[in-house]
Measured scan of single mutants.
Amino acid sequence: MEVRTIKVFTTVDNINLHTQVVDMSMTYGQQFGPTYLDGADVTKIKPHNSHEGKTFYVLPNDDTLRVEAFEYYHTTDPSFLGRYMSALNHTKKWKYPQVNGLTSIKWADNNCYLATALLTLQQIELKFNPPALQDAYYRARAGEAANFCALILAYCNKTVGELGDVRETMSYLFQHANLDSCKRVLNVVCKTCGQQQTTLKGVEAVMYMGTLSYEQFKKGVQIPCTCGKQATKYLVQQESPFVMMSAPPAQYELKHGTFTCASEYTGNYQCGHYKHITSKETLYCIDGALLTKSSEYKGPITDVFYKENSYTTTIK
């Protein structure tokens, strides 16, 4: 009895394709271990004539594949690729409408935090270190965002349907971005203890939790000093293409032309909904596939993004 075979390709990165001759009487799992086709788990399936010449994702289970996976995804987590594939199996079914010149995501599976993050990423200057993220990001900007969303979920250790947080998501993504040249110098002034300067680099240099107003941050924000008295913390120097200011959701007025974009969060910790506000020729609110415009805006804002380049204080 002759062994019926077909020729397929296996890959971990969709760049390096490895030619395989597979036995049609055995499952993919018996031949390769966990195997995925377009995100779908085909591990328990036997090869079919229609699979001839198709590319299958496999887990990096030998040295060659491990090197290829690390170079593309910059992670050695053995569960990463499987999590990416199972997320992709959902995100490829989502709709990605162009809204006001940006790629958004039609609401499904509690994905409003991903839509808000995706919209924000198209408006701030950011370059990702893992080629996987950078490639998928370019495709997302062009309207094909399924891979990018699935990668975000995998890097953030999230599953489809789980509630997510924009600030946490951005923080994970910033860790995989090139923020080497970003720098922030802060000064804390206390009447009792004097003053202390701190220099922050990388992710810490672009994120701040405690106030939404970048102007206020430049002037000074009140913080408790270690001595128990009130101290003032203010920005001395900022070198970065953008800054992200966050605070627990509270009524906040966004003035046209003073910011790049913002995240609105309605609801409580267990259950809520994100919308995205962007400042173009007027203010726009993007909620999944829905767009509304207004000249002014007041609502429960939790993150505001500002364009920056270089700032030095005039406070002496």
Rank of each mutant, 00 (worst) to 15 (best):
E2K: 11
E2L: 09
R4Y: 12
R4A: 11
R4S: 13
K7T: 12
F9S: 08
F9K: 10
T10L: 11
T10V: 12
T11Q: 04
V12Y: 03
V12L: 10
N14D: 07
N14A: 10
N16V: 12
L17P: 03
L17E: 11
Q20I: 06
V21P: 09
V22H: 01
D23W: 06
S25P: 02
G29N: 11
G33W: 01
P34W: 09
P34Q: 04
D38V: 11
V42R: 03
V42D: 00
V42F: 12
T43Q: 14
K44P: 12
K46H: 15
P47L: 00
H48E: 10
S50N: 11
S50V: 14
H51Y: 04
E52R: 11
T55G: 04
P60I: 07
D62A: 08
D63E: 11
D63P: 13
D63W: 07
D63N: 08
L65Q: 04
R66I: 11
V67K: 15
E68M: 08
A69R: 02
F70G: 13
E71M: 15
H74G: 09
H74A: 05
T75A: 06
D77Q: 03
P78W: 11
S79N: 15
S79V: 15
R83E: 00
S86Y: 10
S86M: 14
A87D: 00
A87V: 06
L88Q: 03
N89T: 08
H90C: 14
K93T: 15
K95Q: 08
Y96L: 02
N100K: 11
G101W: 03
L102P: 01
S104V: 02
K106Y: 09
W107R: 11
A108N: 07
N110D: 07
N110S: 01
N111E: 03
Y113W: 12
Y113I: 02
L114W: 01
A117T: 14
L121I: 15
L121F: 12
Q122E: 03
E125P: 05
P130C: 14
P130V: 12
P130K: 01
Q134V: 11
A136W: 05
Y137D: 01
A140P: 01
A140D: 01
A140R: 01
A140E: 04
A140V: 10
R141A: 08
E144K: 12
A145E: 00
A146N: 00
A146E: 05
A146K: 06
N147V: 07
F148S: 00
F148D: 01
A150G: 02
A150S: 02
L151W: 01
I152E: 00
L153Q: 03
A154Q: 07
A154M: 02
Y155T: 00
Y155F: 03
K158I: 07
K158N: 05
T159D: 15
V160M: 04
G161A: 02
E162A: 05
L163Y: 15
D165G: 13
R167T: 14
E168T: 14
E168G: 14
E168R: 07
M170R: 00
S171V: 12
L173W: 02
N178V: 07
N178P: 03
D180T: 09
D180F: 09
S181M: 10
C182T: 03
C182W: 00
R184V: 12
N187W: 06
N187Q: 10
V189Y: 09
V189S: 14
G194I: 00
Q195G: 11
Q196W: 13
Q197N: 09
T198N: 09
T199R: 10
L200G: 05
A205P: 04
A205N: 05
V206L: 09
M207C: 14
M207T: 08
Y208G: 07
M209I: 09
G210Y: 03
G210N: 05
G210P: 02
L212T: 13
L212V: 14
E215V: 07
Q216H: 13
K218W: 06
K218L: 05
K219D: 11
G220N: 04
Q222M: 11
P224F: 09
C225Y: 03
T226K: 14
C227W: 01
G228R: 03
G228E: 02
G228V: 03
Q230W: 10
A231C: 06
T232N: 10
K233S: 12
L235R: 04
L235A: 04
L235D: 03
V236D: 04
V236R: 08
V236A: 08
Q237W: 14
E239T: 13
S240K: 04
F242Q: 11
F242I: 06
V243H: 04
S246P: 05
S246M: 03
P248I: 14
P249A: 14
Y252R: 06
Y252F: 14
Y252P: 03
L254F: 05
G257M: 06
G257R: 01
T258I: 05
T258L: 07
T258V: 07
F259A: 05
F259G: 06
T260H: 10
C261P: 00
C261Y: 03
A262V: 04
S263A: 14
Y265C: 10
G267W: 12
G267V: 15
N268V: 15
C271M: 11
H273W: 10
S279P: 04
S279H: 04
S279F: 02
K280H: 10
E281C: 02
T282M: 12
L283C: 09
Y284G: 06
Y284N: 08
I286A: 06
K293E: 13
K293R: 10
S294W: 13
S295T: 11
S295C: 13
Y297N: 07
G299C: 03
P300M: 15
P300W: 12
I301E: 04
I301K: 03
V304H: 04
F305E: 03
F305T: 06
K307M: 07
E308T: 08
N309R: 10
T312S: 10
T312D: 11
T312H: 13
T312M: 11
T313K: 09
T313A: 15
T313M: 15
T313W: 09
T314V: 10
I315M: 15
I315E: 11
I315G: 13
K316T: 13
